[in-house]
């Protein structure tokens, strides 16, 4: 009984109700509804073109749904808040000023809210396996390094929710291990993570729950091979 009461009392961090997205007559998402409980790692998997990245972008407030509502931390996105609070995001290829170093890029972004200092920035850069004293401009970085810097940028402001679109793409084996360890540690600290990947096996390895997106719908997970 106590477990039931506890379960009912826990509000989801992310709530989607009837979300649809149509772009130029093409249905990308249709009537998608789900919840993301707190301190969980939830994975969205699906084939290319299934709509999983679009779903993440809608939750992040970057594109508006054609129908439906998205509620994050109790606020409806697009009505009560333009973007979800306390949320770190890694979507598409991370963009940085290529003439500046990775650390300088993060310092510039951090200067907007001025809530973190050099120490936190150095820590988060080290956390993802990069060198905070690397003075090379970002244009000299490999794709994997840029991806790691993007993850660092998503983590640096101590978010309570992370939206990560294929975070381990372009990473080598070492980089993938680092990211997985970081995500597990963050989950232990109570951070909620929603991530996409076309690799079902990876998601099953790290996520508490995996949702399968197929042709814009949440469908049944394909059988394990």
């Amino acid at each position: 009984m106590e477990e039931v009461i506890a379960a009912v009392a826990v509000k989801p961090v992310v709530l989607l109700e009837g979300v649809s997205k149509i772009i130029r007559g093409r249905t990308i998402l249709e009537d998608v509804s789900f919840e993301v409980p707190p301190a969980q790692i939830v994975g969205l998997s699906g084939l290319n073109g299934s709509g999983k990245s679009t779903l993440l972008k809608i939750i992040g407030g970057f594109i508006t749904p054609t129908e439906g509502r998205v509620v994050v931390f109790g606020k409806e996105i697009g009505k009560e808040a333009e973007f979800p609070d306390k949320t770190g995001v890694l979507i598409e290829k991370p963009g940085f000023l290529t003439s500046m170093s990775g650390r300088k890029n993060l310092e510039l972004l951090a200067s907007i809210r001025n809530e973190i200092g050099e120490k936190e920035i150095r820590e988060v850069i080290t956390l993802v396996g990069l060198d905070p004293d690397d003075k090379r401009p970002v244009r000299a970085y490999s794709t994997g390094m840029i991806q790691r810097l993007g993850i660092a940028q998503a983590l640096m402001e101590h978010p309570e929710l992370l939206l990560l679109d294929e975070p381990t793409s372009n990473l080598d084996r070492e980089g993938i291990t680092i990211v997985h360890n970081v995500l597990r540690d963050l989950k232990k600290k109570g951070i909620t993570i929603l991530m996409t990947s076309p690799n079902m096996e990876e998601l099953r390895h790290i996520c508490d729950t995996v949702l399968w997106v197929e042709n814009g719908h949440l469908g049944e997970e394909p059988p394990q091979i």
Binding site: G60, E82, V89, I91, E92, P94, G95, L109, E157
Partner: peptide, 15 residues
């Protein structure tokens, strides 16, 4: 917008 919009605009808070 195209290079850093995803990281920049949410930090600023509004479009």
């Amino acid at each position: 917008l195209s290079q850093r919009g995803v990281s920049l605009i949410p930090l600023i808070g509004s479009r």
